[in-house]
């Protein structure tokens, strides 16, 4: 191997190691993941978003008929929000990460009280940064949408059926508490 090539490879490996270390500790600015107006999170941040969603709306273990929240949130943000709102979401995500000082991007979702106290404090304060508030409310709203439009919720709670077996125009609900309606 030529000396120049060897040096180049060592240098590349060192850079890769640095990047991997940064990724591992989630030190990137979330806005760095913006590409052509869309937010392409790395696995670490996506997992972190999933934990945030689970902290805001705990549904772990409820059903396997609920889509992974982080996937749904990112699909809806990237596809259904304006470029300005995607940017706002990314900035707000970064603000959230800094606020929580969770550089390891790990949340103990079984002990969420401390995090939720901070989150509710942010929403209570009028002077809170708009992007941070937007991020929190968007994650909350889309987590709820992911749950309430899931097969689990629509079938078990709303009794949705694509093909109703019958139509009853005037149904006495006091006599039918346990029946599917």
């Amino acid at each position: 191997m030529h000396r120049r090539e060897a040096v180049k490879r060592i240098a590349l490996a060192s850079i890769a190691a640095m990047v991997m270390t940064r990724c591992d500790f989630g030190e990137e600015e979330v806005t760095e993941f913006l590409s052509e107006g869309k937010l392409q999170l790395n696995q670490k941040h996506k997992k972190y978003l999933a934990q945030i969603s689970e902290t805001f709306l705990p549904i772990k273990g409820k059903s396997d008929r609920i889509d992974p929240a982080a996937d749904f949130i990112m699909t809806m943000v990237n596809d259904c929000k304006s470029p300005a709102d995607i940017q706002k979401f990314a900035v707000g995500f970064n603000d959230y990460k800094n606020l929580m000082n969770q550089s390891s991007l790990e949340i103990d979702t079984d002990e969420p009280e401390e995090v939720l106290t901070v989150v509710e404090g942010v929403l209570d304060k009028k002077e809170s940064k708009e992007e941070l508030t937007y991020f929190i409310l968007t994650v909350r709203e889309l987590s709820l949408k992911n749950l309430t439009s899931s097969a689990f919720f629509m079938e078990d709670y709303l009794d949705y059926q694509l093909i109703p077996s019958e139509y009853i125009a005037c149904y006495d609900i006091t006599k039918s508490q346990n029946e599917r309606i």
């Binding site: 902290t55 709306l57 705990p58 969420p112 009280e113 939720l116 309430t148």
Partner: peptide
């Protein structure tokens, strides 16, 4: 479907 108030277990309990 009540969209509930607040966050955390209090929120999911209201819904589920």
């Amino acid at each position: 479907v009540e969209m509930g108030e607040g966050f955390g277990h209090a929120l999911s309990s209201q819904i589920l």
